[in-house]
Write a protein that binds this DNA or RNA. Structure first.
Lengths: 224, 224
DNA sequence: TATTTATGATAGTAATACTATTATTTAAAA
DNA sequence: TTTTAAATAATAGTATTACTATCATAAATA
């Protein structure tokens, strides 16, 4: 028996469910490749279609536009992180251990062999670092938010907030700290690699340094 | 005598110095208006030209493309913040007071009457919140960085790092904490207004809450 | 006054972000 | 097994964007 992780996606994100066909899966797979290689700005449906061996119109039957496709793969990523978090913290009681797992999970580029079918989680992680905030930094955030496009992110933020409160029930900013952890796990990584003088990890360029920084930040902030 | 603040800009950012002509000043002024109103994605040189009453070609004589124009106004903003920081912390010795000034400066939407000539700092602040990270989240960060496009940001980050070290000379991550303060002052504001469940300020929607959050974060982190 | 320099007006191109149409293949239902 | 529906491929077309190029004119300067 083969278990496959299925992440439930918001149907407003697509016109036709990409999980349900080979072409759909190829759209996701090649999108991740292309966005990872050339960035979201340079990514077009025409290039995507060429890369798959289909036509532009073919892609448009699945996704209305490239922004929704980006939000789709980002949502998928947050769903996957949420699953990993639940899985890894299952049966663990100590919130310290849980928080450390969260920080490591968000900061680490999973070099996973068991890539989930057509999705390369490692590349996705790097896409999130470089393009993640473009999902919401638009002038249509409000609309997108009403359509629940950011629910997976919010759910994750809530889950992390819960763990923070387990650690210190009196801490006043669990959600803000959670979103700070998430965003900084990515941004400090981006800075480390592209604008190193904005960080203190320039020499090693090692994710472990980011983890140490965040652990120091979080546990000093929430300690009782 | 009229004193006017002149912020020295990196000449690689423009083809013709916008400070040196009426048209140039109008380009900056109307860019800020348009980007503020419709976001950077919807901003085009054609719309800008129409808004000024010139032609597209006219704008292209000043800026190579809209990305460089964005980097220009963002650089201007960081230069201005740097000036404000130096001015406001001048003669102050206590690093606690200085850090609080930094946090307030970065988190507050200056409703300034004395807007610096053609630049509306309040709108610029909001542009930074929504578009600031787009200056560096590109696949040509490396190139841009080599041309010193991000120097004003780095200088500010360094200056804040210095104050952090004055407070606690043994703190290990002054630059990372500085960039965290800068980015979070903006991002928590964006979240507060557009994705409130990612923060703990949803009820009040008050910048002062962000300041409190950041002060709590920073001083708990760096305390000796 | 001559001449450089900035601007205005207009045109044109390649690429992007789509929409529409029709033919063909594949898969599901009758 | 045939009919029918659904998905895909192939092609074409449009409006907008992101530019580049040209030439005339106005303003500043030598």
């Amino acid at each position: 028996m083969k278990l496959e992780l299925q992440i439930k996606m918001n149907p407003s994100l697509f016109l036709r469910d990409p999980e349900q066909s080979e072409l759909g899966k190829n759209i996701i797979k090649h999108s991740i490749q292309l966005i990872h290689n050339n960035g979201f700005e340079a990514f077009t449906f025409k290039k995507l279609a060429e890369s798959i061996g289909t036509t532009e119109a073919g892609v448009y039957r699945y996704f209305e536009n490239k922004h929704k496709l980006l939000v789709y793969i980002i949502s998928w990523y947050w769903g996957w992180i949420q699953f990993q978090l639940n899985y890894q913290t299952n049966n663990i009681k100590d919130p310290t251990v849980k928080l450390k797992k969260v920080i490591t999970l968000l900061s680490t580029n999973v070099e996973d062999d068991i890539t989930t079918g057509h999705v390369d989680e490692s590349k996705l992680h790097q896409i999130l670092i470089a393009e993640g905030s473009k999902a919401y930094l638009t002038n249509h955030v409000g609309k997108d938010n009403k359509q629940q496009f950011f629910k997976p992110y919010k759910d994750l933020c809530n889950a992390i907030g819960e763990i923070i409160l387990e650690y210190n029930p009196k801490y006043k900013y669990p959600h803000s700290l959670a979103s700070t952890i998430i965003e900084m796990a990515h941004l400090q990584n981006f800075f480390m690699n592209h604008l190193p003088s904005l960080t203190d990890f320039s020499k090693s360029k090692d994710e472990k340094e980011i983890i140490k920084y965040l652990e120091d930040l979080v546990f000093n902030t929430i300690r009782i």
